[in-house]
Amino acid sequence: MKTIRVSVIGFGAVGQGVARVLIDKKDYLEKMGLDFKVVAVADSRTAVIDDNGVDLSSVLVRKQNEGVVGSEKITGLEIIETIDHDLVVETTPTNIVTGGVGLQNMLAAFKHGRDLVTSNKGPLAMKYCELIEAARAGGSHFRFEATVGGAMPVLNLAKDVLAGNTITNVEGIFNGTCNYILTRMTEEHAPYEQMLAEAQELGYAETDPTYDVEGIDTACKLVILANCVFGMNASHEDVTITGITKITPEALLLAQNEGYAIKLIGEVNDSRINVSPKLVPIDHPLAVGGSLNVASVQTDLSGPITVTGRGAGSIETASAILSDMISIYRD
């Protein structure tokens, strides 16, 4: 049995999802010879530390009831720097202006030679090359499948599974909120504002939806794809972005009459990184509805490979993190 000492930094929806899957998959992981022992959990205000392994179930209950994970006043960054462990699971919220605490956490983890798995796309969209270099210098494994497309495998698909292929183009729907709003506008023939309000009520959209509906979230994911899959050194200023706020129900109807759906499509290839609403033939694999994500990877040897799945959600995103954790330590 290989024991891996883990810290979970950030305990919002994704961090809690990671705790749940680690509890649920304990036997499964043991059969693989892996024991992920969580020695520290931190949220934005508190932390809980136990060298013998934190009881994740009681941390989840405490977070639910009291809104905090513990009583220790130690920050995530301090945990990364001072507590002896192997792997940091970084699930703090995304900040694309400064990189937020996530960036500091990641750099500190690599400085101390710890491996890192993250769902936080902000730092990667801003400082990709710097982070990759820091991980290399620290001898750290660094995986971030959860940053693009949630449960839907894209990065590992393009990098590992399709190894040997040259990827010439990736396009798809990388934001479930926009897909939900556009799908519902088409179904109800309702204006954007009304379906945004519905999405907010159902928790699919944030109170301030700018990040999603203006295409910024999609742009960040494209930057990660561009850097990771196409070997570029891009940041989100390199993306041309048009959001969905100007889409009218009439346009959706006209498109439908011509056999198209309108989707917010992100596209990366050697010549451009672009986010904009596009016409997708309704029988095309990219025309998925609801809040689904989809990506079509164009390869030289295999032609197009299309994957679709849930792009967000606590357990779904945690599944991508778990798969990264396993792939680091399996062999």
């Binding site: 346009a251 198209y260 904009s276 609403p277 596009k278 016409l279 033939p281 990219l286």
Partner: peptide
């Protein structure tokens, strides 16, 4: 004006 074009793969 906003232009909405078909996706690249078609």
């Amino acid at each position: 004006l906003l232009v909405i074009e078909p996706i690249k793969s078609i």
